[in-house]
Design a protein around this nucleic acid. Structure first.
Lengths: 184, 184
DNA sequence: CGTTGCAATGCAACTAGGTGCATATCTAGA
DNA sequence: TCTAGATATGCACCTAGTTGCATTGCAACG
């Protein structure tokens, strides 16, 4: 029920084709709501049938034609309705945490390596978010409206990734201590 | 592909019925991997067919019979195989963050209330985790093996919820400032 | 004695999401 | 010229997860 809305939000910020939306879901909005191009094309079709978006065939030269989608008044009304509706709180779903509970039945050294791999991944993601923060929002105190809201979303990403990095560090340190004194 | 494994991990910690697993997925392991009783019963059936678990019909008095599941050697081998396999990094999927990007097109006061509702939810969840931490792991420096691993998982929950609470506070403060000076 | 509620298991139907494959146009480089 | 790669859209199939409903046994409450 929410990919529709994520797409509407993105199309409200700027009209675009399925392909362009797919690119956007590889960054920015996609950091908080993933989607493949398959899902996007399918949902766009459904949204067109529902009258939430309007399609325009745009011939291009040097490239295949594209279908540019724009939000209709019905689509805008739907966003407003949806924003006013309560949403489910964020829930964690972390395979690594489940694995950690099973770590005693596996190879501890391999587990440590895996935790550190995840730590490196989150550190990389964090660096990316921080770079975006510096580049796109150099003066955060002056922000209002959409720009402020986008900044706040990015701040959420920064804070979450920072937490994940810290957790991976804590876990890997604890497991290394454990491996050092396995007879405690 | 991972509910199977979450169930195997839980059954390794202690054998149990589908109903009991459902209870466990309402707490502890379920804080990091949600599942409904439907999914659990279906997956247990599949796992039985695959030979990963063994079922025993246990008549009870005062209550309906139950089917108690135990992990077989094949199931244990499967956990080991799965633990040794790399897993996908945790990804955020947050409807509230998507909504925030659309906040300019909705009722700002309602948005603030919603953010604060989420903040309260995460604060409650955090308090629960912290209580579990104090109650179940009063002396964390002495932990080893499974107890240590369970503690570390809980620490992940604490750290994540703390981050969410802080983010909700930041967002609500920023939106309140914005509402206060809408003509900035 | 009827109702509510917990314990316990399950089917059927649906929605959401992912994987693999197919196809067409044009550009740039080997 | 052939090939690789970006742009652009889509079908078919499969897995995962959700919702709604159904059943049985017993206990406790009024």
């Amino acid at each position: 029920m929410a990919l529709e809305h994520a797409i509407l939000v993105s199309l409200t910020e700027r009209a675009g084709s399925g392909y362009e939306l797919t690119r956007r879901f590889d960054k920015s909005i996609g950091f908080f709501w993933r989607a493949t191009h398959q899902q996007i094309y399918r949902v766009l079709k459904r949204m067109d049938e529902a009258g939430w978006v309007h399609v325009e065939h745009v011939p291009q030269d040097g490239k295949p034609d594209k279908k540019v989608y724009t939000v209709t008044p019905d689509g805008a009304a739907e966003i407003e309705r949806w924003v006013g509706e309560p949403s489910a709180p964020l829930e964690l779903r972390d395979e690594l945490a489940v694995k950690l509970r099973a770590a005693a039945h596996g190879d501890l050294a391999a587990m440590i390596a895996e935790v550190e791999r995840h730590g490196a991944h989150h550190a990389e993601r964090l660096a990316l978010y921080e770079a975006m923060e510096r580049r796109d929002f150099p003066d955060p105190d002056r922000l209002t409206g959409s720009a402020l809201h986008q900044f706040l979303v990015l701040r959420g990403g920064v804070s979450a990734e920072r937490g994940f990095v810290a957790w991976c560090d804590e876990v890997s340190a604890a497991l290394r201590r454990e491996r050092g004194n396995p007879d405690d």
